[in-house]
């Protein structure tokens, strides 16, 4: 959604519409997290009146999908790939292998045991 997208490019990694989208989702989630948590708290708080809680439920479902944490997906820094990402390095498995063999990742070496 273009309303969440930054007007100026604010990414330093591999640029791709998918990476830009993922980045704007992350920012939207971070921005709306207190609101989301507050609504969740109201929904779960049994001391509040039922109508208030129902209203909170409605509001939570009406929030934009970009503000959901489940929308965020790890993407490769070097290729923008969305699958086979090693979380420790934020890289896809192939890019990780290339970088590790070149010795660009500190401490990582070929293992044999």
């Amino acid at each position: 959604m273009s309303m969440f997208r930054a007007k100026k490019l604010d990414l330093g990694c591999f640029i791709n519409i998918k990476t830009i989208r993922d980045h704007s989702k992350r920012k939207a989630f971070a921005q709306h997290e207190p609101e989301r948590q507050a609504l969740r708290y109201i929904i779960r708080n049994t001391t509040l009146p039922a109508r208030t809680r129902a209203e909170a439920q409605l509001q939570l479902t009406r929030m934009h999908c970009y503000t959901r944490p489940t929308q965020i997906r790890g993407r490769c820094l070097l290729g923008g790939k969305g699958r086979g990402i090693l979380r420790d390095f934020k890289m896809s498995r192939y890019n990780f292998r290339m970088q590790a063999l070149e010795g660009n990742i500190p401490g990582v070496q070929k293992a044999s045991w």
Binding site: Q37, A38, L39, P49, R51, E55, A56
Partner: peptide, 22 residues
């Protein structure tokens, strides 16, 4: 824990939308 959740709850409960529900 997310910072600012407590303030947000208070703000929401005081807002126009929630006031008529209590």
């Amino acid at each position: 824990k997310t910072l600012g959740t407590v303030e947000k709850v208070k703000e929401l409960l005081a807002s126009e939308r929630f006031r008529h529900t209590r």
